[in-house]
């Protein structure tokens, strides 16, 4: 029983990390096809927004909301200044967003210094048998699945979602039908930025506040979105579930290094044998 709970916790904890790493990227890369190498910096913006406002005395949930808001504004400015010129140019987006990433992380270093005092994990811990668990991490697991459900509903079921997907798929046709393409792009990009900010806001109480903190999420984010496939909101949960369980299993029997190697090996295998990712698999199954 204790062992079962322990295993379930470890697996879902790993899955929720993959999911939350990927949510912002799922929109910006998965949907809009911008290879956003500044994804980590969006997360950093959300994290620092949360830390700064929490230090000003705001309660943590409101500080987190501020962190998300700051990232949305940050995303909006970037979209207006740079990103809107590189839609449909995926290779150029690599260079542009990499540059943004360097500038932003150095700006953080200059403004905030190499390290800021972080936040303490809220809530407490509880005991199951010999093991104790952080309640906040359990909460993160539920929050990650909840966000995925909301995202699925927003982009796959709502009229805005249909509009956004149609616009990104066929911008010229949409424009001819009277859609304000530019506006839809901007809003979608801001949603993606805000989600990345949310990742930072949610994880910062468990991490050290350093300008490079967002880079810890980059690998997980890209492997999740790539293995999720063309339709990220359908494929993300199965992709994260598969990768998370695989990595946890290997780490359980060996150690973290082999776990990480295993994760990347699994990604290679998925790309090789399931080139359209998990969402492709699901669509084929239907």
């Amino acid at each position: 029983m204790v062992l079962l709970f322990n295993i379930i916790f470890q697996v879902t904890d790993a899955i929720s990390f993959l999911l939350l790493s990927a949510i912002g990227l799922a929109v910006i890369f998965g949907m809009m096809k911008i290879i956003n190498l500044a994804h980590g910096e969006f997360i950093t913006v959300g994290a620092y927004g949360t830390v700064v406002t929490a230090k000003m005395g705001l309660p943590l949930p409101i500080a987190m909301a501020c962190g998300v808001l700051v990232t949305v504004i940050f995303g909006f400015i970037l979209e207006r200044l740079i990103i809107r010129y590189i839609y449909g140019r995926p290779l150029d987006s690599v260079v542009a967003t990499w540059g943004i990433s360097l500038i932003v992380s150095q700006a953080f270093l200059i403004i905030f210094g190499p390290s800021t005092e972080g936040l303490k994990s809220p809530l407490g811990s509880f005991q199951v048998g010999d093991y104790s668990f952080s309640e906040y991490r359990i909460l993160l697991i539920f929050v990650s699945f909840l966000i995925l459900v909301l995202l699925y509903l927003l982009f796959m079921k709502s009229s805005f979602g249909t509009l956004a997907r149609a616009t990104i798929e066929k911008p010229v046709t949409s424009s001819a039908l009277g859609v304000d393409v530019q506006k839809v792009y901007t809003i979608t990009f801001c949603i993606g930025a805000g989600l990345a900010g949310l990742t930072g806001a949610l994880y910062i109480p468990t991490m050290t506040a350093v300008p490079s903190l967002g880079q810890a999420f980059i690998v997980s984010a890209f492997v999740s979105v790539v293995t999720a496939g063309a339709s990220p909101f359908v494929g993300l949960v199965p992709a994260a579930a598969f990768l998370g369980s695989f990595q946890t299993g290997i780490t359980f029997f060996y150690h973290a290094t082999i776990g990480l190697i295993g994760l990347l090996f699994a990604v290679i295998m998925i790309i090789r044998f399931l080139p359209s990712g998990f969402s492709g698999l699901i669509k084929r199954g239907r």
Binding site: Q10, A14, H255, T257, G259
Partner: peptide, 22 residues
């Protein structure tokens, strides 16, 4: 004994392993 890559920032599994070994 566990060796952890420098890129790792999530330690839930490591913590449970330590607790198991007491």
């Amino acid at each position: 004994e566990e060796f952890i890559p420098l890129s790792v920032s999530q330690f839930s599994q490591t913590i449970q392993k330590i607790q198991g070994a007491k």
